[in-house]
C-alpha cells in the first residue's frame, strides 16, 4: 500500500470518504445537519479532534504495545473531545448549545478511532497529519453539503445563524434564496437527513462508477471493516 500525500488526500476527500463511502459517524451526521452552519460547526470540531488525535497517536506510536493500544486511543480521543467541548462551551456557547450532546458524542465517532488504528498508529506524523486533515475535511464537507442542502430546501436560506460560529459580523452572510413559505418542511426534519444522505451516497457512487467503470478494487481496504455507529 502506498501512502503518499496525494493518495491520502484523494482517499479522505473522495475515494474513501468517511461520510458517503465508509458511512462512519452517521449519528451526528444525520442529527445536526439541518443547517449549513451546524454542519460547519460539527465538521470543524470533528476535524480538530481527528487531526489532534492522529498527531498524538502517531507521536506515541513507538511506545504503544498492542495490549494497551486501544485504551490509549480511547484515552487520547476522550481527552481531546472533552477539551474541544469545554472550549466550545466557553467561547462558542450558542453554537455549543445548538449542537448539544453531539459535541461530546464526537468521542463515539468511529472515524476517529478508525484513523488512529488503521493509519496514525502505523505512519509517521507528517502523513498522519495529512490523513487527519483529509479525512476530517472529507467528513466536514459531507456535513456541510447535507446541512446546506437541507437548509436551502427547508428554509430557503444558506448560512443562517452564521454569527453563532463566526461572531456578529457574520450575520450579513445569511443568504435568502427563496421565501421561507416555500420551504419543504420534510427537508429539515429527521427523515430529510436520511433521504438527503441516501441521495448523496447514490450520487457519489454514480460519479465513481462513471469514472472507473471496471475498477472493482476498493480504494483503501484498511478501514472498511469497522462498522458504522
Amino acid at each position: 500500500m502506498t501512502h503518499n500525500h496525494p493518495t491520502i488526500w484523494r482517499n479522505g476527500l473522495w475515494d474513501n470518504n468517511p461520510g458517503v463511502v465508509q458511512l462512519l459517524g452517521l449519528c451526528p451526521l444525520l442529527a445536526v445537519t439541518n443547517s449549513a452552519i451546524n454542519g460547519i460547526g460539527l465538521g470543524l470540531a470533528t476535524l480538530l479532534v481527528l487531526v489532534l488525535s492522529n498527531l498524538a497517536v502517531s507521536a506515541t506510536r513507538r511506545w504503544l504495545q498492542p495490549e494497551i493500544r486501544i485504551p490509549i486511543f480511547v484515552l487520547i480521543i476522550a481527552s481531546l473531545v472533552t477539551v474541544v467541548d469545554l472550549l466550545m462551551q466557553a467561547w462558542l456557547a450558542e453554537l455549543s448549545q445548538t449542537l448539544g450532546i453531539f459535541i461530546p458524542l464526537i468521542v463515539t465517532n468511529c472515524t476517529i478511532l478508525a484513523r488512529a488504528e488503521a493509519f496514525a498508529s502505523r505512519q509517521p506524523m507528517a502523513r498522519s497529519l495529512s490523513d487527519g486533515l483529509a479525512q476530517g475535511l472529507g467528513f466536514a464537507l459531507v456535513l456541510i453539503a447535507l446541512g446546506a442542502g437541507r437548509e436551502l430546501l427547508g428554509q430557503g436560506t444558506l448560512m443562517a445563524d452564521a454569527h453563532l460560529l463566526l461572531g456578529d459580523w457574520a450575520q450579513s452572510l445569511e443568504l435568502r434564496l427563496m421565501p421561507a413559505d416555500w420551504g419543504l418542511l420534510l427537508a429539515v426534519l429527521p427523515p430529510g437527513a436520511f433521504i438527503g444522505l441516501g441521495l448523496l451516497v447514490a450520487l457519489h457512487q454514480r460519479i465513481q462508477r462513471s469514472q472507473q467503470p471496471m475498477n472493482e478494487n476498493p480504494a483503501d481496504g484498511s478501514s472498511q471493516a469497522i462498522d458504522a455507529t
Binding site: T60, W63, Q65, E67, I68, P71, I72, L75, I76, S79
Partner: peptide, 13 residues
C-alpha cells in the same frame, strides 16, 4: 513498560 506508558499518557491527559 506498558504500565508506564499508560501512566504517563494518562497523566498528560
Amino acid at each position: 513498560k506498558n504500565l508506564l506508558v499508560l501512566a504517563v499518557i494518562g497523566l498528560l491527559a
